[in-house]
């Protein structure tokens, strides 16, 4: 049963990426807008308003950065291309929709599903560790963002520089957190399993 569920989730994810990220609907703006709207609605129903907004906020600096470069390339007609703006808008839609969709799909994978997989215990522990760390990570992200708002060393900088530095801090903090969290949880789980066995 878990194999069936995980296969369906993998198939769904693959289908979404094949259709909207690499496949026939990639450059179709109305389809991309609809995909984003559906992903956000689904996220709203599954995780709530706060978490959906928080995810969008996380994407925002990247999307803004992408858009800024897209505009520059468009107006300078870089490499003689005329489609920079259209291509950029598509990317600005694809990034948040694919991230949201992936998050939704992964949220359906439970610890029990992982435990029932026909894999070695070490592999299952690795998967549990990653799932647990990423779950904690999404909760920690909000708190990290809150802390960064309290640091005067960041506040005093130029507005755009402030936004970029703050974003960089957020990514670094999250990376450090996940690294540490994965290492600790993995060690703990393997140790418990060894002594239970």
């Amino acid at each position: 049963m878990p194999m069936l569920k995980l296969s369906a989730l993998a198939l769904g994810t693959g289908w979404f990426f094949w259709l909207f990220v690499f496949g026939p609907l990639y450059s179709h703006l109305p389809a991309q807008s609809a995909a984003l709207a559906v992903a956000l609605l689904w996220s709203y129903l599954r995780f709530g308003r706060r978490e959906t907004i928080s995810l969008l906020k996380f994407c925002l600096p990247f999307v803004a950065f992408l858009l800024a470069f897209g505009l520059i390339f468009h107006f300078t007609r870089l490499l003689g291309r005329q489609d920079w703006l259209e291509d950029t808008i598509v990317k600005c839609l694809v990034f948040p929709s694919s991230l949201t969709f992936l998050k939704i799909m992964l949220s359906y994978v439970t610890y029990l599903d992982i435990l029932r997989l026909p894999l070695s215990m070490n592999r299952r522990i690795d998967m549990i560790t990653v799932k647990s760390a990423f779950q904690k990570g999404s909760r920690a992200l909000k708190r990290f963002s809150w802390y960064l708002n309290t640091y005067s060393g960041l506040k005093s900088r130029h507005r755009i520089r402030y936004a970029m530095t703050r974003y960089a801090c957020l990514i670094i903090a999250l990376y450090l957190f996940l690294y540490q969290e994965i290492e600790n949880s993995n060690r703990l789980l393997k140790n418990r399993y060894r002594h239970l066995g």
Binding site: A140, F144, Y151
Partner: peptide, 13 residues
Amino acid sequence: NQLYTLRALLATM
């Protein structure tokens, strides 16, 4: 948790 953000902040400084 805060220390992760402090480490990141000081690194970017």
